[in-house]
Design a protein around this nucleic acid. Sequence first.
DNA 1: CACTTGACCTGTCCGC
DNA 2: TGCGGACAGGTCAAGT
Length: 295
Amino acid sequence: MPELPEVETVRRGLEQFIVGLTVVDAAHDTPKSFPNAESDVNEFLINSTIISVKRRAKVLMIELSTKYSLVIHLKMTGQLVYVNNVERFGAGHPNESLIGQLPDKSTRVTLTFADQSSLFFNDQRKFGWVRLLPTAEIVNLDFFKKVGPEPLNAEFTWQELHSRLQRRKNTSIKAAILDQTVLAGIGNIYADESLWGARIHPATLVKNVSATKIKLLFTAIQAVLTQSIAEGGSSDRNYVDAAGNRGQYLKFANVFRREGQPCNRCGTVIIKTRVATRGTHTCPKCQPEPKKLPV
DNA sequence: CACTTGACCTGTCCGC
DNA sequence: TGCGGACAGGTCAAGT
């Protein structure tokens, strides 16, 4: 669920809300959600000031004045919701209605700021995490060493996508673009949407996808991610942004969660199957199944 | 090394 | 109505 557009939307909200604030308290429930020594929390988080909020792939980094950062992965059901106080923003602020709604039973970590506003990390399924790490060490995490390029970076080209995909030439194109070491930020929603855009069946083996098709896929990935960021991401289940608002992208989705509905290009009924162990949405006419090789 | 599968969790939905 | 099981999907560890 939170994929690149959702995480980027959260980042933009947090940048607006928390940069410049000073942390005065940090509370958490399970060590799994926030596996940090109390001594580090006391020394490097409490009384620190938020310097910036960054994103790489699906990971958020809240940079602190102590040369430490909070590194956060939302995984499937994570939320980062900022709840202001009326003193700071005045009555009628968009997320004013959240006051008193949080924490709830999914709240794993609560940061309280000097102005008594709060940031809640909620995560129903406890797959996500928050880690307090020295900012300089983030690049040394295994994930950051292996993760592929940002698909919306200006330097990223279709030729580079083509080249990186060749490492996964015997797997399906869907599994390959979900592989974060090939390309950063794609998850199930945008994999299906991008493959529909390029008219490629998700089960097609990478080695059978032509360079022309990969060029179309590159264009589709950028278009889909850009539009989703503009719509505040996709709220399939419980994704919300930093102000607690749902994203609107699924109103514009062409295949994801549209099984049984007509294809926006050709009218054929969208079907849901399983590819790369994931629920997969396709138009059977625009994205014909790959031919089976003779036995 | 390439590739696939299972584990991690909990809330929701579907069938009996 | 209650209950068991399937399902949701990001990432990593372990398996082939």
